[in-house]
């Protein structure tokens, strides 16, 4: 079951970045330093979207502010210097929202009977899946030169 889920999430992330920015997505391995410390670098932005209905899940995207700023600049055509902290945070939220939407549409029946929340973005690495979720997955991606982590909690 987890293999299918991981494949669907990989496909969802790949679709979002390929369509929006023509960027390839690779599953990322932790650096040797991170493996030694067992601590990934702290992300500056954490965006989350909750599912309600037949799909009970939470999708959470963590990325650093610099990546969010650069992606926002690429998406909007604005110079990076004009991308405010709020626009960077908004970009992380929209990316999480689109990944969640692309994942949802891969669940034909449950997806049709489920709704997505508006994204919530927090500055910092605070990722707290609500207690009722039984399963958790964390996947790391390299998209262009950007690195990000996707956490999915579900029942």
């Amino acid at each position: 079951m987890h293999d299918d889920l991981i494949r669907q999430l990989d496909e969802a992330v790949t679709e979002v970045f390929a369509v929006l920015l023509n960027l390839a997505c690779e599953v990322s391995q932790p650096s040797p330093e991170e493996l030694r410390s067992q601590q990934p670098p702290p992300p500056a932005l954490t965006a989350s979207v909750h599912f309600s209905g037949l799909l009970e899940a939470c999708c959470c995207l963590q990325m650093d502010s610099r990546s969010a700023t650069e992606i926002a600049a690429d998406l909007t055509g604005l110079p990076a210097i004009n991308i405010t902290a709020d626009l960077s945070a908004d970009t992380a939220g929209e990316l999480c929202n689109m990944i969640a939407g692309c994942w949802k549409k891969r669940h034909a029946d449950e997806g049709a009977s489920s709704q997505l929340s508006c994204p919530i973005v927090r500055r910092g690495s605070c990722h707290h899946a609500p207690p009722p979720f039984r399963e958790n997955l964390s996947l790391r991606y390299q998209i262009g030169h950007h690195r990000m982590t996707l956490h999915v909690a579900f029942n």
Partner: peptide, 13 residues
């Protein structure tokens, strides 16, 4: 759209 970034993206498109 509640997302300022998406409003910009749509305007640009």
């Amino acid at each position: 759209d509640d997302s300022p970034v998406m409003r910009k993206v749509v305007e640009r498109a």
